[in-house]
Amino acid sequence: MRQVTNPDGEVLYRDQAACAVAQEERRKAAEREARRPVCKRCGQKFTDQRWEETTAGGGAWTAGDAAVCGNCRADDVARKEAARLQAAAPPEDDQEPDRGRGWFRRRT
């Protein structure tokens, strides 16, 4: 029994299969991009890393706003740190405190 082969048909089949796979990958990538969150402050789309951090349960990103991108989040952290440092710094008053005006101090 003789086996009939059609080499052009096999090439065509492989090309069509590869094309179908590529189209499916493009469709999935487009759907994923459509679901990608957007920062509520600047409107920039989240990076893959930030998207994963906000959707992962727990971790270092549990504190703070999960609806902002990494850059806005970094700005928030820097702003809070600056406010904390400013609050912890002693006042820069060069004046000597008023003596003798307390409840139990003697006036001199």
Rank of each mutant, 00 (worst) to 15 (best):
V38I: 15
A63T: 07
R73T: 03
E31L: 15
D98T: 13
A74Y: 01
D65Y: 03
R27S: 11
A88N: 06
D15V: 08
A17S: 11
R35W: 05
G102S: 11
A22G: 04
R84L: 04
C72L: 09
A34D: 05
A22C: 02
A74F: 02
L12V: 10
A22L: 09
D65P: 04
G58E: 04
G70S: 15
R99Y: 09
G58M: 10
P90F: 00
C42G: 06
R99S: 10
P7R: 06
A66T: 05
E52P: 00
P37W: 08
P37Q: 09
A29H: 12
G57M: 02
N6K: 11
V11W: 03
A63Q: 10
A18G: 04
A20K: 12
G64Q: 05
A22P: 00
E24Q: 15
R106G: 08
D48C: 13
R73H: 05
P37S: 11
P7Q: 10
V38C: 05
Y13I: 08
A20M: 06
D76Y: 05
T55P: 01
Q49C: 11
E92R: 15
G64C: 06
G100E: 09
T5H: 08
R35P: 01
R2H: 05
T5W: 05
D93G: 07
K80V: 00
Q86V: 06
Q3G: 02
E53Y: 08
P90K: 07
R32W: 01
G100K: 06
R50N: 04
A74M: 04
N6P: 01
Q3F: 06
E92M: 08
C42Q: 03
E81W: 00
R41G: 00
V4P: 01
R27H: 12
G64R: 07
P37N: 09
A78I: 02
A30V: 11
T108N: 12
Q44E: 13
A56Y: 03
V68I: 15
G9N: 10
A78Y: 01
D98E: 15
K28F: 05
P7N: 08
G100T: 09
G59N: 06
A20T: 10
K28E: 14
